[in-house]
């Protein structure tokens, strides 16, 4: 596609911290290249703000190559903007045209309180992982690679689930602020492997418990999470999570 430049109006959420109310500020950016990434456009805007003696906009980012999951932005009503299976850092300005107005908001969820501007606190995800998203193994010499036979289809499914980058777009897109897609990916990737077998039942129970404590909602299967997930995690994992939970429940793990 032809390269082009564009002038844009940005409405960006500004908020000092979690304690105070925030509001939208409107900014103009000029001569933005269609080849820039969305975050580069924000860098230009921040440079501009610094030159004007104003405070730059705080936003999360790290890898800028679609693998860390940090770049949370709700752009024109969609997590990570209009492109499917794309993080904000991989969204490019050719998704927009000259004269567009773009509204940028932080993830909105009680369990993801705003730290500042567009940056939210996603440590609730970390605590869910700490509650059971691991396997306990004794370290030592690396095992022979083929010690544990794993069927190809199981390995593939597990790997697909493991591609979840913990970005929180699923929560941000869900009308219930449910973390079920994230949790289902984490539970599935271990439940499908022999290494995950030992803690299989306690894992799902403890992780669901923690998810509820953190204040995420119930899943009502609207599918918004799957549509907005940058890694294309399937809601078939939520089916598996439900089934793992039911099995754990009726075999007595929940009794404790």
């Amino acid at each position: 596609m032809e390269h082009y430049n564009m002038n844009l109006t940005l409405k960006v959420w500004r908020q000092q911290n979690a304690q105070v109310q925030g509001s939208f500020e409107t900014y103009q950016v000029k001569e933005i290249s269609s080849e820039m990434s969305f975050l580069e456009m924000f860098d230009v805007l921040n440079e501009q703000l610094i030159h004007e003696g104003k405070e730059p906009i705080t936003f999360d980012h790290d890898c800028r190559e679609g693998i860390c999951g940090a770049c949370s932005m709700h752009i024109n009503g969609q997590a990570h903007g209009p492109w499917a299976e794309t993080t904000t850092c991989q969204l490019h300005m050719r998704a927009f045209k000259d004269g567009d107005t773009i509204v940028v908001e932080p993830w909105r969820a009680g369990a993801f309180p705003v730290i500042k501007d567009l940056m939210v606190d996603r440590s609730s995800f970390d605590r869910i992982i700490q509650a059971g998203g691991y396997i306990s193994v004794n370290t030592g010499n690396a095992q022979d690679a083929n010690n544990l036979p794993i069927a190809k289809d199981k390995a593939d499914e597990s790997f697909a689930a493991a591609t979840c980058i913990g970005c929180g777009a699923c929560v941000a897109s869900c009308k219930n602020s449910s973390a079920m897609l994230f949790l289902s990916a984490k539970v599935s990737h271990l439940a499908l492997l022999p290494q995950g077998e030992a803690e299989r039942a306690t894992r799902v129970v403890n992780m669901v418990d923690q998810m509820d404590k953190e204040g995420f909602g119930s899943c009502t299967n609207t599918g918004a999470c799957e549509a907005e997930c940058p890694k294309g995690i399937s809601i078939m994992n939520i089916r598996r999570l439900n089934s793992e939970y039911i099995k754990a429940g009726f075999t007595g793990t929940l009794a404790k």
């Binding site: 009503g77 969609q78 997590a79 509204v103 908001e105 969820a109 602020s177 909602g217 119930s218 918004a224």
Partner: peptide, 14 residues
């Protein structure tokens, strides 16, 4: 309950 999990609504809803 599910509605209460998002105390601040989006300006542009999905």
């Amino acid at each position: 309950q599910n509605r209460s999990k998002r105390p601040v609504a989006y300006n542009v809803a999905p």
